[in-house]
């Protein structure tokens, strides 16, 4: 068990969100899309230039920029 930032995760890696360290517009947008502590996510892929990142959460695929993924701490096996 170790905690990583979402940006540091590899393609195909799965983990559980531990914390989201941002409020305001971005924080709200992240949460309303289903990224909340306790949610299980899998890295779906990365765009050709390595950014943004696509992740699977709650049966859907989301994409966010690395700079936004930096606020999300994930616990991985």
């Amino acid at each position: 068990m170790q905690t990583l930032l979402l940006r540091q995760m590899q393609k195909g890696q799965t983990g559980t969100i531990r914390a989201i360290k941002i409020g305001g517009e971005l924080g709200r947008r992240i949460r309303e899309m289903g990224l909340i502590p306790g949610a299980q996510i899998t890295i779906h892929g990365r765009a050709p230039l390595n950014d943004p990142v696509a992740i699977r959460v709650m049966n859907g695929t989301l994409t966010l920029r690395n700079s936004e993924a930096d606020y999300i701490q994930v616990e991985v096996q």
């Binding site: 947008r29 990224l35 994409t63």
Partner: peptide, 10 residues
Amino acid sequence: PTPFVMELPP
């Protein structure tokens, strides 16, 4: 920048 977070719909 406006948050980019968006859905990749099926």
